[in-house]
Design a protein around this nucleic acid. Structure first.
Lengths: 153, 153
DNA sequence: CTGCCTGCAAACTCTTTGCACGAAT
DNA sequence: ATTCGTGCAAAGAGTTTGCAGGCAG
């Protein structure tokens, strides 16, 4: 999905919910879609302020749920107290994460069998699956050997 | 692992780390191993205080890492801000969780393929896997139909 | 104009930590 | 005795929210 198409989707979603497009929301959107890697709420605030310095932390936190509901962003919880976000380019949630615990880099890996697993297991328990996540925590080999992590930004 | 064996393991682990067995630590241990379901730090505090009312919240939070390091407890992060704990009866981490979002009940399901997946994917990235987790969030069918969730405690 | 939106700062939740007292070895 | 352990209360981190003023439609 191009940025332009994403922006349109954002506007449509806002309109459908009776919400308004504001300069702050637009700045937050642009900041999010300008990122190539996973980002935190705080990093998003920094980048949004570079576009519109009137953006506040509160508005970032209020806008993030709107963008995840509209499936523009994907929320990734890797078990820390911080949540990460990523522009959702595929609309396909069949993705696992491999997390380097040395540098916190997150790799997104296709894992199409996840949905099958979720459905199978849920139905046996009388449940209807909503989502599934598969995450692998790992050490960086290069860091272990040389003291430098190649995955560092 | 029986409770008695687990208690012995706890003592051994404490001794190996140069730590002391105290009434509070013992009460927290007994409270943890008296639970059949997943529990939170706060619930553990309540139950530990029922055994020894001198147990403080701080000691619970200081004892939990000791018990997870000794593999007596398993920590389960289901993506909320709260962490859950469970007596670790198998020493085998090849377990997935199915979480009923209606009642927060957590089902533990064997998933032996997780380790294989983690190893395969990590090695392709030049990483050494530490752990993996697979979680499915789901709705309770009975709740949807009758308004009552059979999974409620 | 009306009512959603905003920034600010305070509140919140869970967890961690500094301190001085207390207890285990 | 010495060293670790403890409770208490305050601090911390990330996130949420009440409020009074501001801007989109």
């Amino acid at each position: 999905m191009s940025n332009a198409a994403a922006r349109e989707k954002f506007k449509t979603h806002l309109a459908a919910k009776g919400l308004r497009m504001t300069n702050q929301r637009l700045a937050i959107f642009e900041a999010a879609f300008g990122r190539k890697e996973h980002f935190t709420a705080e990093e998003l605030l920094d980048h949004a302020r570079a576009i519109d310095d009137s953006v506040s932390r509160a508005t970032v936190y209020r806008t993030l749920p709107i963008m995840t509901e509209s499936v523009l962003l994907r929320e990734v919880d890797i078990g820390t107290n911080i949540k990460y976000y990523l522009p959702n380019t595929t609309d396909n949630a069949q993705v696992a994460q491999v997390i380097c615990v040395d540098c916190n880099k997150i790799f997104e890996i296709s894992a199409p069998f996840m949905e099958w697993y979720g459905s199978t297991v849920s139905s046996k328990l009388g449940l209807t699956p909503i989502s599934q996540r598969l995450q692998v925590s790992a050490h960086c080999n290069v860091l272990q050997q040389t003291g430098v992590c190649k995955n560092h930004a």
